[in-house]
Simulated assay, not measured.
Amino acid sequence: MQILADRHLAKPDDPLTLLGARVHEAEGRGRIAFALFQAARTAGPVFWIALAHDQDRLLPAALPEGLAERLHLVEARDETDLLWATEEALRSPAVALVIAEPARPLSLTVGRRLQLAAEAGCTTGLMLIHQGSGSQAAETRWNCEPIPGPEDSTRHRWSLIKNKK
Rank of each mutant, 00 (worst) to 15 (best):
M1Q: 08
Q2L: 02
D6T: 12
D6Y: 07
R7T: 11
L9P: 05
A10Q: 13
P15K: 03
L16N: 10
T17N: 10
L18A: 13
G20N: 06
G20K: 02
A21S: 15
R22F: 03
H24N: 03
H24Q: 04
E25M: 07
A26S: 15
A26G: 15
E27D: 12
R29N: 11
G30Y: 02
R31P: 08
A33N: 03
F34E: 00
F34K: 01
A35D: 04
L36T: 06
A39G: 01
T42M: 02
T42G: 00
P45I: 13
L51C: 12
L51N: 06
L51A: 14
A52Q: 05
A52L: 04
H53R: 10
D54K: 08
Q55S: 06
D56I: 10
D56V: 12
R57Y: 02
L59H: 12
P60E: 02
A61W: 03
L63H: 00
G66T: 02
L67R: 00
L67I: 03
A68I: 00
E69W: 03
E69T: 11
R70V: 01
H72Y: 10
L73F: 09
A76D: 14
R77W: 11
D78W: 14
D78L: 15
E79I: 15
E79F: 09
L83S: 13
A85I: 04
A85G: 06
R91Y: 07
V98H: 02
I99K: 02
E101F: 04
A103K: 13
A103D: 15
R104Q: 15
P105T: 08
P105R: 14
L106P: 12
L108M: 14
L108W: 10
T109Y: 07
R112K: 14
R113D: 12
R113S: 09
Q115T: 11
Q115H: 12
A118E: 09
E119C: 07
G121Y: 11
G125Q: 04
L126T: 03
L126P: 04
M127L: 15
Q131E: 15
S135N: 09
S135W: 03
S135R: 03
S135T: 14
E139S: 12
E139A: 13
E139P: 02
N143R: 08
N143S: 06
N143F: 00
C144A: 10
C144F: 05
E145G: 02
P150K: 03
R155L: 06
R155Q: 06
H156G: 07
R157C: 03
I161H: 00
I161Q: 00
K162F: 06
N163S: 10
K164W: 13
K165W: 10
K165N: 10
